[in-house]
């Protein structure tokens, strides 16, 4: 049972980012490897508001959402849009370069020392033998709400419908009169906010430092691949799978190899079911 609780908490951290990554992939058909850097940026934004400015963490979380959304939308405009029409490989490479730049921008201003949020000390809740920290409870709740709202937004609202239409067939969306560019920007803002949220959540659980960016990139992408890269909800389920695999690794192998779990899951998915858990085969232009 304890494993379930811990796995849920781990999954809750990366799930929003995995949903955001999938959204980006669906809209533009390229894998944005800078996800980890956006998450790390979110963590630093939250930390700055929480520790430097001394405000409560929820305010830091809001700042993280805003910074995440802004950075992603900006990088989309300045870096990725001008490269539209280039191969997926090119965009992939650029996203890695961007990630490297962002990581070092943070290193430049904040240094490499490990940082942590300023959180009031609270005892864990005990349900029988089960130990649930209040932080974990908050992380799971917030993450769950974020994912459900994203799902609701995509399925129930006009903008969500438009986002799915653009993801489905960009040129038809254009011909049918949809403002494709603006809709894509909205999608990027949503994805960016989700990255920022993951950044805040990851900071509650782990130490914050610029190297965080690579540490989370692989599990996030692994979760998205597990979910089939075609459905945001699948990505959330993928995050659950990664969370469980990570907790089992921590329990039965070595905690140090938690970081290799994402990679192992990808390997297993590729060996068993290349199209992912839910998705159909990924085809890219």
């Amino acid at each position: 049972m304890q494993v379930v609780v811990n796995a849920l908490a781990s999954a809750a951290i990366i799930a929003p980012a995995a949903v955001g990554f999938t959204l980006t992939f669906m809209l533009f058909r390229y894998a944005n490897f800078a996800v980890g850097a956006f998450v790390m940026l979110g963590a630093f934004a939250a930390w700055t508001v929480n520790v430097t400015a001394g405000l409560p963490l929820w305010a830091g979380g809001i700042a993280a959402l805003a910074i995440g959304a802004m950075t992603v939308a900006l990088s989309d405009r300045l870096v990725f849009r001008p490269l539209q029409g280039r191969t997926g490989a090119t965009l992939l490479l650029v996203s890695v370069a961007l990630s490297f730049v962002l990581e070092n921008v943070i290193r430049f201003f904040y240094g490499s020392q490990i940082k942590g949020f300023d959180l009031p000390l609270t005892g864990p809740l005990m349900i029988g033998d089960l130990r649930i920290t209040r932080e974990a409870l908050a992380v799971v709740t917030i993450s769950g709400i974020a994912i459900l709202s994203t799902a609701a937004l995509l399925t129930l609202t006009p903008i969500g419908r438009a986002l799915r239409a653009v993801a489905d067939n960009t040129s038809l969306a254009d011909v049918r009169g949809l403002p494709v560019g603006s809709i894509q920007t909205v999608g990027m803002i949503i994805a960016g906010a989700l990255f920022g949220l993951s950044g805040t959540l990851v900071g509650i659980d782990l130490a914050i430092d610029p190297g965080l960016s690579w540490a989370v990139t692989i599990p996030i992408i692994a979760a998205a691949i597990f979910g089939g890269l075609g459905s945001p909800l699948g990505a959330a389920l993928g995050a659950l799978a990664i969370g469980f695999a990570e907790e089992l690794t921590v329990m039965f192998l070595a905690p140090a190899y938690k970081g290799a779990v994402g990679f192992m899951v990808i390997v297993v998915v590729l060996l068993l079911r290349p199209q992912g858990l839910l998705g159909v085969a990924v085809d890219r232009k």
Partner: peptide
Amino acid sequence: SGDFLAIVTLGFAET
């Protein structure tokens, strides 16, 4: 597709 080789090699290096 090429994305998979990219993530597998990245994960390999990290591992």
